[in-house]
Computed example of a mutant assay.
Amino acid sequence: MADALLGPAEIRELAARLGVAPTKKLGQNFLHDPNTIRRIVNAAGLRPDDVALEVGPGLGSLTLGLVGAVAHVHAVEIDPKLAAALPATVTAPHLTVHPADAMRVKAADFDPAPTMLVANLPYNVAVPVVLSLLAELPTLRGGLVMVQKEVADRLTAGPGSKVYGVPSVKLAWYAEAKPAGKVPPAVFWPVPNVDSGLVAFTCRTPPMGDIDRSQVFAVVDAAFAQRRKTLRAALAGWAGGPDRAEKVLVAAGISPQARGESLTVGQFAAIAAAAKLSGVGGKLSASGKQPEEVDS
């Protein structure tokens, strides 16, 4: 390791020296347990030649663990004060700090290109950050992220599960994900009122890669916007009517009476492919929902 890992006393001393107080707005809960850091680094399955991408390094706890395990670390930090202080805490020549919003970074911002995403993600933006980075960085081969336990359950849920939904399907488009353990609140400062969970994922070629991702995601959003309804009804707004939705579903080999929570990502892709062949499919509004949708 380039520097010793940070414990509770070091975290508080560093924060005081920098005049930093964790903010709820940025979802800041600083990790201060060296054993948890080692556990994350080990569970990530990193190789010595990997280029790790860390989002929200904060005071540098996990960053210190990563620089000793990979060839290069990119740390994306939205808080300018923390971004400026990180190189003094993690004195490694193979660390690049990016003072930026992880939702706005581009592949061209990173040299060398990231191969693994390893991060303790802010709870309030965890899902959009993961999906945005997977869409933007095709060089990623996998990763391990720590998120709120409830979010971890959703991201790794399979069809038929009560918590299977939009995040589950969209992550499955990019990768095979699995739970990698629970993390207690006591290893953070300040202590959150929920458990955290680790999600490990391995990237793969999307199912039916000739179908545009946005077309598949439009079907997913429509199906789960009214998840208690049958797909024939839930996809009516997207397809231009329940009869047209039924025609597409039958063409895709899926029962019109099925519900979105029972479908795999491959089946959602099959619906998008059938819709493309028959010229069916609405456009998403700026909010990410079909203009005709109502919650029910």
Rank of each mutant, 00 (worst) to 15 (best):
F217R: 02
H74E: 06
A225L: 05
L171V: 06
L198A: 04
D212P: 00
L134K: 12
K283F: 06
V55I: 15
K162W: 03
G142R: 06
V67K: 02
A200H: 14
T139R: 10
A270I: 00
F268S: 01
P206D: 05
V250E: 15
P57E: 03
F30D: 00
E13W: 10
A2G: 09
G240A: 14
P159V: 08
Y123A: 11
A85F: 05
V97H: 03
V163F: 03
D221R: 14
L284D: 09
R38E: 13
R204Q: 13
A286Y: 06
L64H: 06
E54S: 09
T89F: 02
N29I: 08
V220G: 00
L131N: 09
H94D: 11
M146I: 09
L18C: 07
L171F: 06
E136M: 12
T230R: 10
K229L: 04
V55P: 00
T230F: 03
A286T: 14
P179M: 08
P185W: 05
A119T: 02
P34A: 08
L198Y: 03
A270P: 00
T91D: 13
A4R: 15
V183Q: 09
A102K: 03
S296V: 14
L64E: 01
W189Y: 15
A234V: 12
E293H: 14
A251P: 07
F110P: 03
L137K: 13
G165W: 07
G282N: 01
L82G: 04
D195R: 09
S285D: 15
E77G: 06
L53K: 11
R213F: 11
W189H: 15
A69H: 10
L86H: 08
L14Y: 12
R259S: 04
P179F: 09
Q148D: 05
A16D: 15
F30W: 14
R213M: 12
S214G: 13
P99I: 09
F201W: 08
A251L: 05
E10G: 15
L5N: 08
L231F: 02
L18H: 13
V194P: 00
A83K: 05
V76L: 07
R141L: 07
G282R: 01
F30R: 04
Q148W: 10
T23Q: 14
F224S: 08
A2L: 14
A218L: 05
G160P: 11
N42I: 01
G68I: 13
N120A: 13
G253A: 12
R17T: 14
H72C: 02
G165C: 11
V129R: 09
A88M: 05
A177W: 01
A84W: 02
F110A: 06
A239T: 09
V191T: 15
A69P: 11
V118N: 08
E261K: 11
H98P: 00
A200R: 15
Q148V: 09
P22G: 13
G260E: 02
P242D: 04
R141K: 14
D243Y: 04
N124W: 01
P48Q: 12
L235C: 07
G181V: 10
G241W: 04
V194A: 14
V216C: 08
S161H: 08
A251H: 04
E136P: 03
N35C: 02
A85I: 07
A92N: 10
